[in-house]
Design a protein around this nucleic acid. Structure first.
Lengths: 117, 117
DNA sequence: TGCAATACATTGAACTGCGAGGTATAGTGA
DNA sequence: TCACTATACCTCGCAGTTCAATGTATTGCA
């Protein structure tokens, strides 16, 4: 994950990162995730269902998540939880993100040092 | 720029952000920007010329940048510098980025608080 | 002469993320 | 009972970015 030619398309995959992070804490279902991201980010980040569901399906396909159906009040939900593989994936994405954010932060704030050509 | 329906496509526009930031400090030319981003980010971020030039052209078209040709050692360079409009644009992107990064950071680190349903 | 570095630029493909739309059930109020 | 909203799932096509690859031309060096 650190040996690609350049950047893996920069910050793509933030929804995936957030979803994995939420599922690390507790089992959740799609609709719930959409609202959790919105509320936990103080309305700063909003991902639609059109983003969340495809990501969940892809992660399950890659065995980073596993799902089980539960019916509650006659309402069927698909609960997702993390696998060990998903946990590893989260750790990787998390460190990628941190590196990137730090690099950008440095470029934005530091650098009153101009140059010494 | 802060009143879109949801997220302005998340973090798209990071190259633009970095380019504007560099040009805020000093006049630069395309090839130089490519290398400055790479070195100032400690090799964490690499943007190719295929990213930088289109961004420069677009920003100039929108009057966020202005350019002038200089020939040095028989080598022609196009130097870009920021306009007042570009400065405002940078301020906006910068604050957008900061909000986003903070929100993500909070979701990644905070939240041992699980829930209280 | 040949090669690498500099310096500009464009193009096509690939990938995300997004909004819009579609289905179905449960609860609420008229 | 009916209509409306909220819940809960899902898919499709568009739009916008980024990337690698490629092309041109010049300079300096061996």
């Amino acid at each position: 994950m650190a040996g690609k030619s350049t950047n893996p398309n920069f910050m793509n995959g933030v929804p995936e990162l957030l979803i994995l992070r939420l599922l690390q804490q507790q089992e959740m279902y799609g609709y719930e995730i959409v609202q959790a991201i919105r509320s936990q980010s103080n309305e700063v980040i909003t991902v639609g269902e059109g983003v969340v569901y495809p990501v969940l399906h892809a992660l399950e396909r890659e065995k980073a998540l596993k799902s089980r159906r539960k019916t509650i009040n006659g309402r069927s939900r698909v609960y997702y939880s993390m696998t060990r593989s998903g946990s590893r994936r989260l750790a990787g994405l998390c460190s990628d993100w941190t590196n990137l954010a730090e690099a950008i932060h440095t470029m934005l704030t530091g650098a009153e040092h101009i140059e010494a050509v």
